[in-house]
Computed example of a mutant assay.
Amino acid sequence: MPPLLRSIADGVIRIDLQFHGRPQVIAAYLLYDGREAALVETGPTSTMEKLLEGVQAAGVPLEALRHLIVTHIHLDHAGASGALIQRLPWARVYVHPVGAPHLVDPSRLLASAARIYGDLLKPLWGEVIPVPADRLAVVSDGERLTVAGHTLIAFDTPGHARHHHAFLDETTGLLFTGDIAGVRLPGIRYVRPPTPPPELDLEAWSNSIARLRALKASGLCLTHFDVHREDIEWHWEDLERRLWEWGHQIREMMAENLEEAEMVKRLRERADEELRAAGADPEFYDVAVSYESVVAGYLRYWRKRAAATASGMRG
């Protein structure tokens, strides 16, 4: 099997999308039963050719690829949806109800992303093409999708974003986690919480973790990156601990009236030291989720909380 592919279960192959030539940043998961195929995650348009190369290298004809399932609509997970529908007009995109309107009309999604990436938006992620409404399938919490010989159950899992699903494969026990299980490189015992603005919600994230832990999945299939099987309970604990620790650290720095750039610098220094102690190269984690986006997400979260508290007191 070519290096960008890895068989992780019967009928399930992980494809490394080689984001801008970097391995182990973005994964898509291919399901195939010999007749039809499905993808969990499309990745961004900038990696679409690598995705389709991987599908065909796995021995799957493109005509068999009929189901494009996205965990949420952020560009690294669903950005290629519209371009893929142009290439595969027989396929459908499966998406959370909150995310569906933004795939049909991505203008607000792109405006939000532009505030984070600026002029790098298109070079990083490629062109974002609308998905025709009649090619969308809106998926509800608890819904079962029978695709490519597998049955996937959708779990509404806010915290990282309001439009987020995780999918449990009843056939294999694998859980496709999107971003709700964080960012972790293969072989490394360290989970980074991806907390970009504007929809970070720490309480909702903890509730989502509790819901998914109760499923007792056989493996966590992360978009960033790969499948993790041996230490699933530790993984959830490490993620939730760091999610809240970083949140409290940012809140303390806000109380010191530090500039945002200084917050990023301090978080980077602390976290990179942890990463090196875990045997990881901090640069690889930065490609998947930057400290700038992490800090921006926490700042928005705490400011929204403060505004809501002030409004309640006035009421």
Rank of each mutant, 00 (worst) to 15 (best):
residue 2 P to H: 15
residue 5 L to H: 07
residue 9 A to L: 06
residue 12 V to M: 02
residue 13 I to P: 03
residue 16 D to M: 08
residue 19 F to T: 00
residue 22 R to L: 13
residue 23 P to D: 13
residue 27 A to P: 01
residue 30 L to E: 00
residue 31 L to Q: 01
residue 33 D to H: 05
residue 33 D to E: 04
residue 38 A to T: 01
residue 39 L to W: 03
residue 40 V to H: 03
residue 41 E to K: 12
residue 55 V to S: 04
residue 56 Q to K: 15
residue 60 V to Q: 04
residue 62 L to R: 07
residue 63 E to V: 08
residue 64 A to E: 00
residue 66 R to Q: 13
residue 70 V to E: 00
residue 74 H to C: 07
residue 76 D to F: 14
residue 82 G to E: 03
residue 85 I to Y: 05
residue 86 Q to M: 08
residue 87 R to D: 00
residue 89 P to F: 09
residue 95 V to F: 06
residue 96 H to R: 10
residue 102 H to C: 02
residue 103 L to H: 05
residue 104 V to D: 06
residue 105 D to A: 13
residue 106 P to W: 05
residue 108 R to P: 02
residue 108 R to Y: 09
residue 110 L to D: 04
residue 110 L to A: 05
residue 112 S to C: 04
residue 114 A to Q: 14
residue 115 R to E: 14
residue 120 L to K: 15
residue 120 L to M: 13
residue 120 L to T: 04
residue 121 L to D: 00
residue 124 L to G: 05
residue 124 L to N: 09
residue 125 W to I: 01
residue 126 G to E: 02
residue 127 E to P: 03
residue 128 V to N: 04
residue 128 V to R: 10
residue 128 V to H: 07
residue 129 I to E: 12
residue 131 V to T: 11
residue 135 R to C: 09
residue 136 L to Q: 13
residue 139 V to A: 01
residue 140 S to C: 13
residue 141 D to R: 15
residue 144 R to F: 08
residue 145 L to Y: 09
residue 146 T to S: 14
residue 147 V to E: 00
residue 149 G to C: 03
residue 150 H to N: 01
residue 151 T to C: 10
residue 155 F to S: 09
residue 156 D to Y: 14
residue 156 D to C: 12
residue 156 D to P: 05
residue 158 P to D: 07
residue 160 H to K: 09
residue 162 R to A: 15
residue 167 F to V: 05
residue 168 L to C: 03
residue 170 E to S: 10
residue 176 F to H: 05
residue 178 G to H: 06
residue 181 A to G: 10
residue 181 A to Q: 10
residue 183 V to R: 13
residue 185 L to P: 07
residue 186 P to T: 03
residue 193 P to G: 03
residue 194 P to Q: 04
residue 198 P to R: 11
residue 199 E to S: 04
residue 200 L to K: 06
residue 204 A to Y: 11
residue 204 A to C: 09
residue 204 A to I: 12
residue 217 A to Y: 04
residue 219 G to Y: 05
residue 222 L to R: 05
residue 224 H to D: 00
residue 226 D to V: 05
residue 228 H to S: 08
residue 235 H to T: 10
residue 238 D to N: 15
residue 240 E to N: 11
residue 240 E to W: 11
residue 242 R to Y: 07
residue 242 R to K: 12
residue 245 E to L: 12
residue 252 E to W: 11
residue 252 E to C: 09
residue 255 A to D: 10
residue 258 L to N: 07
residue 262 E to V: 05
residue 263 M to Y: 02
residue 265 K to C: 08
residue 265 K to Q: 12
residue 266 R to Y: 01
residue 267 L to P: 07
residue 270 R to T: 08
residue 271 A to M: 14
residue 275 L to E: 06
residue 282 P to N: 06
residue 287 V to N: 01
residue 294 V to Y: 00
residue 295 V to N: 04
residue 298 Y to R: 08
residue 298 Y to C: 03
residue 299 L to G: 07
residue 300 R to A: 09
residue 303 R to M: 09
residue 303 R to C: 02
residue 305 R to D: 08
residue 308 A to H: 09
residue 310 A to I: 00
residue 311 S to C: 06
residue 312 G to V: 01
residue 314 R to K: 12
